[in-house]
Design a protein around this nucleic acid. Sequence first.
DNA 1: ATTGACTCTATAGTTACTATAGACTTTAAA
DNA 2: TTTAAAGTCTATAGTAACTATAGAGTCAAT
Lengths: 137, 137
Amino acid sequence: MIIKIGELAKISGCSVQSIRHYEKEQLLSAKIRSDGNFRLYDQADIERLLFIKYCRSLDLSLAEIRQLLSLNDSPMSQCDDVNQMIEQHIEQVERRIAELTLLNKQLKALRGSCTSKRTVEHCGILKQLNKAVSQNN
Amino acid sequence: MIIKIGELAKISGCSVQSIRHYEKEQLLSAKIRSDGNFRLYDQADIERLLFIKYCRSLDLSLAEIRQLLSLNDSPMSQCDDVNQMIEQHIEQVERRIAELTLLNKQLKALRGSCTSKRTVEHCGILKQLNKAVSQNN
DNA sequence: ATTGACTCTATAGTTACTATAGACTTTAAA
DNA sequence: TTTAAAGTCTATAGTAACTATAGAGTCAAT
């Protein structure tokens, strides 16, 4: 079964532009083109794109996915590389979670500090922000 | 006390380019320039920049900060606007935390699935990824 | 007067796309 | 068979919040 880019977009749930973008980034290429220069894809391409999409849903960068795909393409390479990448990615995600959790606390502390219907002159949030600034200074 | 941009960068911990960027984005402007066209800042500018920096550390966007600053500058406006913005921001942060937490779980499940020293041919991580893809399909 | 440090503007690069313009191709109906 | 709509092509610009660079001008000290 051979399909064009619009069909592939529908099947995969990716946008047409994304697919062209992945091609530019060397993650996925239409090996053949139609007479009119339209990209043509087969089943293997569909699977490759779904793989890419799944990895993106894990927040892996295109560079990381490119690496995974090339490991996948050359079966003699070592697992260690894959492991190490995933490990680093986990650390990065955990750092980000910690940051956001702290952030959330601070924002919630702010939220309580301003009662409605007052003018900003006495706005608790702005007061708190300004206070935080002068303390950090 | 009047200082130039390099000094302001040192005091605030922002880069020189960031400060110029904030000016382009209308968050902070050097009201005066030297004869040689150098930006000159005073104490109020330092405080304004520290305010910006603190808000950035809360992950507020430059657009949101611009809004806060303009509320701060016009004391007759309503607190409600500030409250609403912070509220939305909290929601956004919480959504992101939830996403990342799920992500983290999935990554950790992956991590265990590949033992070292094997070739990628039998790499558990890649196997799992490919499996996930075919299931979602 | 000259050197080195600093500053200026303007531009390109980062990431993973989205959106647009203008031209060409394909498919379906009239 | 013509024509119109829908799809596709490339290339370019925009998004966010910067960072990095080039090339030119300014300032302070020697």
